[in-house]
C-alpha cells in the first residue's frame, strides 16, 4: 500500500497570476503513470509541498476529466503559500492527495443549484461551477452568487461574464463597497437573495467562504423552506496530515480533512457557528 504521507514530484507547467494575492499553479506529475492515474472530485484538495518549507492544503480547481490540467488556485496567506508564489514555470514541488470528500455533484444533477461564495476567489466552488458549466444540461437553474468586501477584490470578471451567458444561469455579484463604475450590487450579499430563482424543493445549495457569511446564507435558505439536507458547505480548518491522523482539523466528531471539507449542513448543524470549535 502506498504511503499516504509521501509526496510525489510535480512540475509547474504554467503559473497564472489571477490578482495581486491570488495565483494558479498548473501542475503535472513528473511520473507519467502517476499523472495518468490521478483521479479526484471537485471540492477535494491536495497537500502541496515546497522544498525546505513545508506543506499546505490546496483545493483542486481544474476539471476532473481534463487530464492535461491539474490546477491549484492559491492565496498568499502564510509561509508556504508565499514561497509557492515565488515559483516559476519548470520549478518542482511535491504533491500528495487527493484528500477529503468533494461536492455532492451526482446528487445535484436534475436539481436547481445555488452556489454562494464570499471573500477572495473561493477556489473550492470555482471547481464546481466549471464542472456544471461543462455539463450544463444535467442541472436545472444555476445561480452563482459572489460577495466581496471591495469591488477591487472581484477577480475572474471574464469568467463571470461568460457564465452569465449560459442558459438558465443567473450570476449575482455584490461588493460591500464599490467604485463608481461598479456594475453590480453594492451592499451585503444577502441583498441579492431575493433575486435568486430556484425551486426550494429541488435545489442544492453549495457554499464556501467566511463562516459568518455562510451562517447568514443558511439562515436565509432555511427560512425559505429549503431542507437542511440540501445545504452543503466547504469548511476550513488547520490541516497537517490530510488523512484524519494529526487531529488539527477536528470539528466535533468530524475530521474536516477526511469527512469534509465539504459537509452537508445536516451533519454539522450542532456545532456550526459555535465559537471555539
Amino acid at each position: 500500500m502506498p504511503n499516504p504521507y509521501l509526496p510525489y514530484e510535480a512540475k509547474i507547467i504554467e503559473r497564472i497570476q489571477e490578482s495581486p494575492t491570488l495565483f494558479t499553479l498548473r501542475l503535472r506529475f513528473t511520473d507519467p503513470v502517476i499523472h495518468k492515474d490521478f483521479r479526484f472530485e471537485p471540492g477535494q484538495f491536495n497537500m502541496l509541498y515546497l522544498y525546505g518549507v513545508g506543506e499546505v492544503p490546496i483545493s483542486i480547481v481544474s476539471d476532473p476529466q481534463d487530464e492535461h490540467m491539474l490546477d491549484h488556485t492559491i492565496r498568499t496567506v502564510g509561509r508556504v503559500t508565499r514561497g509557492l508564489a515565488a515559483l516559476k514555470e519548470g520549478d518542482r514541488i511535491g504533491v500528495r492527495g487527493p484528500f477529503g470528500r468533494g461536492w455532492p455533484l451526482a446528487h445535484a444533477e436534475q436539481h436547481d443549484v445555488v452556489v454562494v461564495t464570499g471573500g477572495l476567489g473561493c477556489a473550492p466552488v470555482v471547481s464546481v461551477i466549471h464542472y456544471m458549466m461543462r455539463r450544463r444540461e444535467r442541472f436545472g437553474l444555476i445561480n452563482i452568487v459572489q460577495g466581496v468586501k471591495h469591488s477591487s477584490d472581484f477577480i475572474w470578471k471574464e469568467r463571470y461574464d461568460q457564465w452569465r451567458k449560459a442558459p438558465d444561469t443567473e450570476v449575482l455579484v455584490a461588493a460591500d463597497a464599490g467604485e463608481s463604475l461598479w456594475p453590480w450590487h453594492v451592499g451585503p450579499v444577502t441583498g441579492l437573495f431575493d433575486d435568486l430563482k430556484f425551486d426550494k424543493d429541488r435545489v442544492i445549495i453549495m457554499m464556501c467562504g467566511p463562516e459568518g457569511m455562510m451562517r447568514v446564507v443558511v439562515k436565509y435558505m432555511l427560512a425559505q423552506g429549503v431542507d437542511e439536507s440540501a445545504i452543503w458547505l466547504s469548511m476550513e480548518r488547520d490541516m497537517h496530515c490530510g488523512i484524519g491522523h494529526c487531529g488539527h482539523c477536528q470539528y466535533g466528531g468530524k475530521f474536516v480533512c477526511r469527512d469534509g471539507p465539504v459537509f452537508c449542513y445536516k451533519e454539522i448543524v450542532d456545532l456550526f457557528g459555535v465559537k471555539g470549535f
Binding site: 525546505g52 513545508g54 506543506e55 496530515c241 494529526c246
Partner: peptide
C-alpha cells in the same frame, strides 16, 4: 491522545530537508 504536528527541518549543510511529526496538544 493522538494529536501531532508536522513540520520541516532543512539540513544545515543544504543537503536535504527532513519532514517530521511530533506530539502536539489541543
Amino acid at each position: 491522545c493522538f494529536c501531532h504536528a508536522e513540520d520541516e527541518e532543512p539540513a544545515l549543510d543544504g543537503s536535504g530537508s527532513e519532514y517530521f511529526r511530533q506530539w502536539d496538544s489541543c
